[in-house]
Each structure stands twice: as structure tokens, then as C-alpha cells.
Nucleic acid binder design. Structure first.
Lengths: 149, 149
DNA sequence: GTATTACATTTGTATAAACAATAATAGTAT
DNA sequence: ATACTATTATTGTTTATACAAATGTAATAC
């Protein structure tokens, strides 16, 4: 189903405007699906993203600011998001003694276990892989990167 | 600047996962730019979107449900968003006598004037048009539509 | 050493999103 | 007519976003 049907709209001013709306709409579409999927693990999509970021650095901990600049939603409040993950036992907070302004965050074994469980559940991730080819994904990445120049 | 630099990340599991993150990140990037741009007009991006939807139907009014299914963010609360626009004098609410469950919403002359002003301000819209070609916009639209199949 | 500036994180707050529940009206079956 | 169901919109509530302000620490200038 094309964007015109999804938004019950027949016309766009031009391809560029349509592309902009299409990116926003598709992003919302993905977000909603992800949120529904992650609900059973009791985490939000961006919380999942932060866990993946921390796993990438593991066992080296990360500062809040380093996490924040890797997050998809740059405006979201890293302190509070990480605190939510800590309350769930997914991450560990440790005041950095070398520089007492910063806090070291690292993923716990429980957090790693959750990620492993989600990684195994390929059905969810397959949805996008089945719909577009690798070449199309590459082309998509190229155009999106170019758009933000 | 590519996604890896934007997110300070060196590797993605595969092109499909990168594409998913790229869509979400680019959508946020656009949203933030739009929000900053529309701030001087004292409206939000989705409020602007609804005004455009109402202009498309003008002079025929629209029901709330019809507006809602054309909105980009399907979860957002149409009643409250339209009420915000009404408070700003951009739209008109009229109880439908033929079916007293529904409410007819139409854009006011003030709303049309605002849209005309924004339309004239091409500098903002040119940003995306300068970065990618028409052919790339078409390809982007094709791939995104295919992805949501 | 004190003041100033920069840095890293936390806290506060207004607004919006997500989702469920309610209310009001209209249509349908018996 | 009455009960039942569907439709349309509103309201309520919890959580998250956006952004500004404040806190605490470190580095630098004088």
C-alpha cells in the first residue's frame, strides 16, 4: 500500500514533499510496531537501543553524555531513561572517581540476557528484511544520508 | 555526514538494521528542524499538517475521524490538536446537525493566510530539495512504500 | 588562592503522546 | 418500543518529550 492510500491523500505538491511525509510516516509506523513488540519485554524502543549501545561498549562502561550522542532521539532525557533501565536491573551506575562529575553506566548480565533473547527472536527483525532487498536497503541508507547533508 | 558519524557508531549488524535506524534517526532529524521552523508561527509540525489537510478539503469541512486517518501520527489525539488550532483561530468547529455525533471542522481565512505565508517561505522547503534529486526522492518513496507492505 | 569559565549530570516544568474509559448519538434486531 | 451494537467524539491518566534551569565538579585565568 502506497503512502497515498495510507494517508487517504491523492496528491502531494511534489516528490520531495512526499518523501518528507513518507519518512515521517514510515518512522512512526516502525516505532509503533517496535513499541508493541518490546512491550512484552517491558522496555521501550529507545531503552532497547541504549542497551544495544551499552553492549557495544561492554565491558567498558560509558558516560551518560557518550550514550546520549549515540541515541536516536537526541532530545530525550538520558538520565531518566538510564534510571528506568537501572530500576529494571538492566544497567549499573557507578560514580566515576577519576572525574566525579561523570557517571559510568554499564550493562548488567540481566541486560545482556534480555538482548540475547531479543536477538534470537528473528521473526520480528525479519519483517523489514523480507519486504526490501539488501540492495534497496543500501540505496535507502545512501539517500537518507545524502538528505541530511 | 553518514549515519555512523551521526550516531558515533562504527558498525551495524546489517544493511536492513541500519536502514531501520536510519529512517528513525532521519525522521527525528526532520521533525526537530520542522519544529524549530514552525515555532515562529506558533504551531507544531502536526498542527501544520492538519491545516494542510483541511485546506485540501476546503471549503468542504471534515469530520474529526477523517482528519485523524490522514494524520502522520496516528496515535495523536485529534480532538485536542484541533482544539489547539481553534483556540488560535485557525479552524472552525461546527456541530453537525445531520449526525449529532460528529463535528465539522473547517479551516478559517486566518488559517489559510498562515499556510500561504509558510508556502511563500520556500527557503525552508528547499533544504531537502537541494540535498537529493527528484529521481532520488522517487526512489526513496518507492522503497519506503515497499518496506511497509 | 579566588574568580571565572567549562563540563557532566540532574531536576523542574510545560506540553504532547499513548492508551483506556466514558459519554452521546445513531442504527439494527426482535 | 426496547435492548443491543456500532459509531463518533471527549475525557482521564500515565508516561515521555522538549527545553530551561540548577547543581556539583573540574579546569583555567589572573
Amino acid at each position: 500500500m502506497g503512502l497515498e492510500e495510507d494517508l487517504k491523500q491523492s496528491k502531494f505538491a511534489n516528490e520531495h514533499q512526499k518523501a518528507m511525509v513518507n519518512i515521517l510516516f514510515t518512522s512512526n509506523w516502525i516505532s509503533n510496531r517496535n513499541a508493541a513488540y518490546f512491550k512484552k519485554f517491558n522496555i521501550s524502543p529507545e531503552q532497547f537501543n541504549v542497551l544495544r549501545i551499552l553492549r557495544g561498549s561492554n565491558p567498558k562502561p560509558m558516560r551518560l553524555a557518550d550514550i546520549a550522542e549515540r541515541m536516536i532521539e537526541k532530545n530525550s532525557n538520558c538520565t531518566r531513561l538510564v534510571e528506568k533501565l537501572r530500576q529494571k536491573g538492566m544497567v549499573d551506575r557507578q560514580l566515576c572517581e577519576a572525574n566525579r562529575r561523570q557517571v559510568d553506566i554499564s550493562i548488567t548480565s540481566r541486560g545482556l540476557k534480555l538482548l540475547a533473547e531479543i536477538d534470537k527472536d528473528v521473526d520480528h527483525w525479519l519483517t523489514i528484511q523480507k519486504s526490501i532487498t539488501k540492495a534497496e536497503a543500501e540505496e535507502l541508507n545512501r539517500i537518507l544520508d545524502k538528505l541530511r547533508q
